[in-house]
Nucleic acid binder design. Structure first.
Length: 1183
RNA sequence: GCGGGCGUGGUGGAAUUGGUAGACACGCUAGACUUAGGAUCUAGUGCCGCGAGGUGUGAAGGUUCGAGUCCUUUCGCCCGCACCA
């Protein structure tokens, strides 16, 4: 009986579906699964595109499926679900073109995907399928959004907390001491002020703290797509999708405060098992850099007003800097400080303590304000401050504070004693009322810069601001205004792309303003230049031409001074960016110091003088969360008085409205602006018609106009809904948790289910999501963890990126020719013009294609054919081309061209076109079928080579419809079977590596499966014997178990397929037919080729699915050998092998080797210098 | 420029702690069989050489009894980030 894979595969796919074979159990576990450990294997769910799957898509799914099946055999309760990331652009674009509702397109595409997936025999638990575009799913996406809105980030505790707690803090102490992630422009206020604010004012302030917030921000606007894009959706300055240009634009948008999580996202990379390259991508994206924030006071103001005196920047003005410094310190406490804080916080000793608190010009480590007790810890990272400590104490005491000090060792050594002393002091101090200290507004009067090289501060010779910098308008002097305005306008016009493409052109203008060097007091000119990015750091740089190449270039271009502050380094030609091993010079108190010393010293000095502080900066920006699209999750948001309000959970999901057109409205609103029913009735909690809105609200762009502001209007409780939708990554950021408890109507995932499944043990998908999906998903997981909805902080424990499968494109060639006067001479331009032909252009011969080797012959053009071979080639060329030439020359016969120019030669150019790969076998084209199936080639002629073949050119490219190189897995399944496809995809090479697909090679794997089938059959009959297997077969089999198991565990699927091949080859040679081997062999191979394994398993007399069988155990005893075939090398080169018993001692081995004739022959009478014997391994003789 | 990764036959790729380089497969060559097929089987196949033998993992050097593997230098390719201060 031969191997009828189609029948077998259909049979088992039906069986699995009918019996729910791969359904994962949620706790409490019962039956066979009782007590089984869990394992969660997840694939990145696909976006169901209209093109369907090609053979590249299932690669990762096959790998994860093999692993999932393997884990089931090993006794795990395996969760292996699949679903669809079904919101997205293509369905919407299709809707715009055809009017077909995206939901319909999506549904159709999903059906096709499912059909294709089912044919490959995956062991997905489809009962848990999720679709991000289903209201039951996006209800919870909306819910998570609301939770983000209802949360703020406590940087002290490093976690997200409910916004209600922040409100409480504000009303008791204002915002000056709260260390929360917030907008940069947040102003400080006291508790009294807060309590006096109106409800709307409070809301506006809270928006600056919420983890998702509405703010006017510079966004990446893509006019062609009509939407904003997140940073990770832009590649090289153009949109990732479509490649359209992107410009900067100010818009009010929802954003996600992911920047608050930067440090955690960075640190926790160390906890997860991802590839180094991927972690590196994330690290790059987060872009942490450590340095200092420095403020340069502005010296000269326009109109000559406010001429600042020498004491312009005084202590009082620096308070905001110190406050920021205090925040920094709180974020990186020393071990000792942590320990102490742990014991002081939350009124542990009966009184409220504060950490890193600002008192006048000092930051103290801990203070109990009500008892006026300061607790200082010496040593650790703040030990540079030691010299000023005495002075501090004096000043603090003069203000009525008592200061007690501890050393690190005391804290770590005996915390109890320390606490005891603090308690005693607390008891002794009289209680007073806390005094609220108000910080001055941030950014008062200076240019703040971030620098990673504060040690080079004495090398500053000018400053540069980004053209968009806020201060530019304020500081530009009248004489320079015109020039500055012109420059700003010019640089605003340049798209991001242009700016990037042209990094070499140096441009900038002087503002006329000067800043004051914080240490030397010198005046420093302030310039603007577009090499400074508004979006990074503060949008301003202190320019150190001697230490930074860009600053150097700028200085040289505008003839600005270049001060050298490095000892023994020449900076006249280029900047010196090295750090280690250089000594700073010309730098006052930094002179003579090396990089590290100088860095520490200057930061200390900056902090002491209040001109700056040590600071860590991140490149990671908050993520824009609004998209001007239809096919996405609607925001559960309506607006009252221009302020966003959330719809209660019980009224979710807020369903997408129907619209007539999927394009933006005429007034430029997002597509949802076309909806006629898109207003929220807060009294009845439902979506109602826009008619219900007050007139003034119809203009939704005018969010700030309140109904009450319009005379005569009354608030009927109906408000406009948000018109934007969420981006693609919203739904995919948490889907892994939904699978754990899909369909739960009460929670996004139940506590029990999440606690049991925890997070994903193995995640497989493409590397294109390195900075998008994977970062956002980590962010949401951390957030949900902080707020107590998840027990885990990371979504994916282990992650593997499968490599892309590339397609082999085939090209067929046409030629264009240009005739020549002789073998070496072309027609001149003049001649071509005169005769009115060809015009220097190559005349393409349409509809005639040439076998690629024929073209190669045609192309050869010798200056003058000398050999007969060359002459023959030229003749061939003429013979082929002359008819076309004659054809063309008819038209020009009147010009008498023929008489004047003899077409003795042709210059040839080839033109290649993609030809569908399904008509190519190897590199030969199946012309007949091509003509039959592809209309455009119906009447084409094909010029074959001498052997009568038509050869194509092949090239490896990404698989895509437009390149006609897509290989459809359905076709492969039909022709070779799913098991063959699965094994072949694995056999192609290492999972993570990109590799070209080559259908021709599939026969090797297919033949292997046939051989496997044959092992269980005698002729046409199924036949397996009860005979004991031979020792040899047992050895073969156990060797295979060992290797395959190791390989699966290391995700080295390609080598395990080889191992199976070797095993079956050997068993076949051994004529092994024994049940004792063939039965467990079927289990061993089941993860790879499940259909054939099930069929054989059933034929062996089993009634349940092979997937329930235990994985075969490898036994060492079958592999024990008594002899070893020793390789004998001379000077490290292997010459021959020698069979020797394994129990021989070193000396005995040496003796036997030396006694061998081949050794004697090699030695040729001489004595070996040295003999190395590694028992069980090798013998090496040194001559 | 910075960071990560990779260079092995005609092709995809194997090679454990440094221990027989090229497993397995495609392709190719020759042969067998045959109611001609995209079938099956046998043998061969890194390169040079009839052979003995020599040579060989991008290149050069080093460590070692022994290097595809470790170290140094260098060349090439791929990926990520990028006027990031």
């Amino acid at each position: 009986m031969s191997y009828h894979f189609n029948k077998i595969e259909e049979k088992w796919q039906k069986y699995w579906a009918k019996n729910n074979t791969f359904k994962a159990q949620n706790p409490p576990l019962s039956g066979e699964k009782e007590g089984a450990p869990k394992y969660y294997v997840l694939d990145m769910f696909p976006y169901p595109s209209g093109a369907g799957l090609h053979v590249g898509h299932p690669l990762g799914y096959i790998a994860s499926d093999i692993y999932a099946r393997f884990k089931r055999h090993k006794g795990f309760n395996v969760l292996h679900p699949q679903g669809y990331d079904s919101f997205g652009l293509p369905a919407e674009q299709y809707a715009i073109q055809t009017g077909q509702h995206p939901a319909v397109t999506t549904e159709n595409n999903i059906a096709r995907y499912r059909e294709q997936l089912d044919k490959i025999g995956f062991s997905f638990d489809w009962s848990r399928e999720v679709r991000t575009s289903e209201p039951d799913y996006y209800k919870w996406t909306q819910w998570i959004f609301i939770q983000l809105f209802e949360s703020w980030y406590d940087q002290e505790a490093e976690k997200s907390r409910p916004i209600s707690e922040l409100v409480e803090l504000f009303s008791s102490e204002g915002n000056t001491r709260v260390n929360a992630a917030c907008d940069e422009d947040t102003e400080s206020f006291s508790a009294d002020e807060w309590n006096r604010f109106s409800a709307d004012e409070k809301e506006r302030i809270l928006l600056k703290y919420r983890l998702t917030y509405l703010a006017e921000a510079e966004v990446n606007w893509c006019p062609q797509l009509g939407t904003v894009l997140a940073n990770d959706e832009i590649v090289n300055g153009v949109s990732e999708r479509g490649g359209y240009p992107v410009i900067r634009k100010k818009m009010t948008q929802w954003s996600m405060r992911i920047s608050a999580f930067a440090e955690r996202l960075l640190q926790d990379l160390n906890k997860i098992d991802w590839t180094e390259s991927l972690k590196e991508s994330q690290r790059n994206w987060i872009g942490k850099s450590v340095g200092a924030m420095v403020e340069f006071p502005i010296l000269s103001f326009p109109k000559g007003e406010e001429k600042p005196g020498p004491g312009y920047m005084t202590g009082g003005n620096n308070a905001h800097l110190l406050l920021e410094k205090a925040r920094e310190n709180r974020n990186k406490p020393t071990e000792a400080e942590k320990t102490l804080w742990h014991n002081l916080r939350n009124k542990s000793l009966g009184y409220k303590f504060r950490q890193q608190h600002l008192i006048d010009d000092f930051i103290v480590d801990f203070v109990c304000l009500s008892k006026r007790l300061v607790v200082e810890v010496d040593g650790g990272i703040h030990d540079l401050q030691v010299e000023t400590d005495e002075q501090r104490t004096k000043i603090l005491e003069s203000q009525g504070f008592k200061v007690i000090r501890f050393r690190n060792e005391e804290l770590i050594g005996d915390i109890e004693a320390v606490l005891e002393r603090i308690k005693t002091n607390l008891a002794e101090q009289p209680a007073i009322r806390e005094k609220v200290q108000k910080a001055p507004p941030s950014g008062a009067g200076g240019i703040k810069v971030f620098t990673t090289r504060p040690d080079t501060i004495f090398g500053v010779t000018f400053m540069t601001l980004a053209p968009e910098h806020d201060l530019v308008q304020k500081i530009t002097t009248p004489e320079h205004r015109e020039e500055v305005e012109a420059y700003i306008e010019a640089s605003a016009k340049r798209s991001e792309r242009e700016r990037m493409a042209d990094v070499k052109t140096i441009s900038g203008v002087f503002t006329g303003a000067y800043a004051k060097h914080p240490f030397t007091g010198e005046s420093i000119p302030v310039w603007i230049g577009d090499y400074v990015l508004a979006g990074y750091g503060t949008g301003a740089v202190m320019a150190v031409p001697c230490g930074d190449q860009r600053d150097h270039d700028f200085a040289r271009h505008f003839d600005l001074p270049i001060t050298n502050i490095f000892e023994n380094v020449d900076v006249s030609q280029e900047a010196y960016a090295g750090k280690e091993g250089t000594v700073i010079a010309n730098s006052d108190f930094l002179s003579g110091l090396e990089y590290k010393e100088a860095l520490n010293k200057v930061i200390l000095e900056l902090e002491k003088t209040g001109h700056g502080y040590g600071k860590t900066n991140y490149r990671l920006r908050d993520a824009v969360f609004s998209r001007q699209r239809y096919w996405g999750e609607p925001f559960p948001v309506y607006y009252v008085n221009g302020l966003p309000k959330m719809i209660d959970l019980e009224h979710l999901p807020l369903r997408l409205p129907e619209v007539e057109k999927y394009l933006p409205t005429e007034t430029g609103e997002p597509p949802l602006g076309n909806a006629t029913d898109w207003a929220w009735d807060t009294k009845n909690n439902k979506v109602v018609s826009n008619e219900m809105l007050k007139k003034v609200q119809h203009d939704r762009s005018n969010r700030d106009v309140t109904p009450s502001a319009v005379e005569g209007s009354q608030d009927n409780g109906v408000y406009p809904l948000e018109l934007n939708t969420m981006p693609g990554w919203a739904g995919s950021s948490w889907y892994l948790f939904r699978y754990m408890d899909a369909g739960n109507p009460d929670r996004f995932v139940s506590e029990e289910a999440q606690k049991y499944w925890e997070n994903v043990d193995l995640y497989i998908g493409g590397s294109e999501h390195a900075t998008g999906h994977l970062l956002y998903s980590r962010f949401w997981t951390k957030f949900l963890h902080d707020r107590g909805w998840l027990t885990v902080e990371e979504p994916f424990k282990k992650l593997i990126n499968q490599g892309m499968i590339l397609g082999e494109s085939a090209f067929i060639k046409r030629i264009g020719f240009n005739l020549a006067k002789s073998f070496t001479e072309r027609l001149t331009k003049e001649e071509e013009e005169k005769y009115g032909i060809l015009q220097g252009k190559y005349e393409i011969i349409d509809n005639i294609y040439f076998s690629s080797d024929v073209v190669d012959i045609l192309k050869v053009s010798k200056s003058k054919p000398e050999t007969e071979e060359e002459l023959r080639m030229e003749e061939t060329k003429n013979n082929i081309l002359l008819p076309f030439y004659t054809e063309i020359s008819k038209d020009i016969a009147e010009n008498g061209l023929k008489n004047k120019v003899q077409p003795v030669g042709f210059f040839i150019k080839t033109y290649k076109t993609h030809v569908p790969v399904q008509f190519v076998l190897g590199n030969k084209l199946d012309i007949e079928n091509l003509k039959k199936e592809e209309n455009i080639y119906k009447d084409a002629s094909f010029v074959k080579n001498e052997k009568g073949e038509f050869l194509v050119d092949c090239e490896v490219e990404k698989m895509s419809k437009s390149k006609y190189n897509v290989v459809n897995p359905d076709e492969i399944c039909k022709d070779y079977g799913a098991d063959t496809l699965r094994m072949y995809e694995m056999f192609l090479g290492p999972l993570e590596q990109a590799k070209p697909w080559n259908t021709a090679g599939i026969t090797g794997v297919h033949n292997f499966l046939k051989k496997l089938w044959k092992l269980y059959h005698d002729g046409d009959e199924f036949s397996v014997s009860d005979d004991k297997p031979s020792a040899e077969s047992l050895k073969t089999f156990h060797k295979t178990i060992k290797k395959v198991t190791e390989d699966i565990e290391e995700f080295s699927f390609n080598t395990s397929v080889s191992t199976f091949m070797i095993c079956v080859n050997e068993l076949t040679a051994q004529k092994c037919n024994s049940l004792e081997i063939l039965e467990p062999l079927a289990v061993l191979i089941a993860p790879y080729a499940p259909h054939i394994a099930e069929e054989l398993w059933e034929k062996l007399g089993n009634s349940n699915s092979v997937s329930t069988a235990a994985y075969p155990e490898y036994e060492e005893k079958y592999l024990v050998e008594s002899t070893k075939n020793y390789p004998v090398s001379f000077n490290g080169k292997m010459r021959f092998t020698m069979e020797l018993p394994l129990d021989l001692s070193k000396d005995e081995i040496e003796k036997s080797v030396l006694a061998d004739d081949r050794t004697k022959n090699k030695l040729d009478g001489s004595t070996p210098k040295k003999i190395i014997v590694v028992p069980g391994k090798i013998v090496n003789i040194v001559i």
